[in-house]
């Protein structure tokens, strides 16, 4: 340990620097959202609010329970979607990680192929909305696109393949364990690090998603998740301010009610606040998977 003292200092210095670089913009974001709108526009952004104001947050929360309902939706779809995602990914990735699986290369290729080619938005919209009928239902937020990512399958496959020794499977098979048994007693415990990682990716994807809300929710806006709601605010603001140069007098009246950048900063902060709060609690799951020895014994 002593020998590694220099190394520890190096590692910690670099990572502290990285951490600062990562967190500073968030501080700026928060501070700008707390700065009085007029001061922000006149003096520009600053780490220290020239004049403190909660105006931006008042603007957002004026819509009242809509925001809280949307938080609820987000939590619901994130939880459901992530569980389904991890389960499906793991169930698919484990067989694919076995070198003797028939047609393994072909299946891997077919999975990979979907990462490259897609039919575009319109065909998938027609399929999900007209044939499967997810439009204006909560399924519209959960099912399309997010429930299984080919990328995650391949990453998990690689992990299983390299981190779980074949000898463990062989031993289990000699003991007469069935495949489901092997999956639950060897693959899942040993794969914990990657399961948590993929789970995190999936949860973030669900949390950050607003596309599904945009495409599949048209009339039941009470189903909007938080990002859909906030993104709608932001895209309206952007459209109106960017078109201010080219519109006729028609839009000018509407334009006048466009809130300023401070509100958008506040919106961004509101959207990520809960997940920032949850982050520290997730951390313990990233710790090492169960030591190999424990399983062997």
């Amino acid at each position: 340990m002593k020998r590694n003292r220099g190394y520890q200092i190096l590692a910690n210095t670099v990572m502290l620097l990285v951490t600062a670089l990562v967190i500073l913009p968030f501080v700026l974001l928060l501070m700008s959202s707390l700065t009085d709108e007029n001061v922000l526009l006149a003096n520009g952004y600053s780490f220290i609010p020239g004049k403190f104001s909660l105006g931006a947050y008042e603007y957002i929360f004026r819509s009242g329970d809509k925001i809280f309902r949307a938080y609820g939706m987000t939590i619901l779809i994130t939880a459901t979607g992530t569980v389904a995602n991890i389960a499906m990914t793991a169930l698919f990735a484990y067989p694919l990680s076995l070198k003797k699986l028939p047609a393994r290369r072909v299946i891997t290729f077919l999975v990979f192929f979907t990462m490259l080619f897609n039919g575009g938005l319109v065909p998938s919209y027609i399929l999900w909305s007209n044939y499967i009928g997810v439009k204006d239902t909560v399924w519209g937020l959960i099912l399309p696109n997010l429930m299984l990512s080919p990328m995650n399958i391949l990453l998990m496959r690689t992990y299983f393949e390299t981190s779980i020794p074949d000898t463990l499977y062989e031993a289990a098979q000699i003991d007469g364990a069935s495949q489901p048994k092997i999956f639950t007693s060897i693959v899942l415990p040993l794969g914990k690090p990657i399961l948590v990682t993929i789970g995190t990716f999936s949860a973030l994807a669900y949390w950050n998603d607003w596309n599904n809300g945009l495409y599949y929710i048209t009339q039941r806006t009470d189903l909007y998740a938080i990002q859909s709601l906030l993104n709608k605010m932001v895209s309206d603001i952007q459209f109106l301010s960017q078109n201010s140069g080219n519109v006729s007098s028609d839009l000018a009246a509407t334009l006048s009610k466009v809130p300023s950048t401070g509100v958008q900063m506040a919106i961004a902060f509101v959207a990520i606040l809960p997940i920032i709060a949850v982050f520290p609690f997730l951390q313990k799951y990233y710790s090492k998977g169960i030591a190999l020895g424990a399983v062997k014994g």
Binding site: G120, P123, P150
Partner: peptide, 13 residues
Amino acid sequence: YIIINNYLPMLGI
């Protein structure tokens, strides 16, 4: 899921 979500819409190419 992959067939529904990825392969069927691929007809759209």
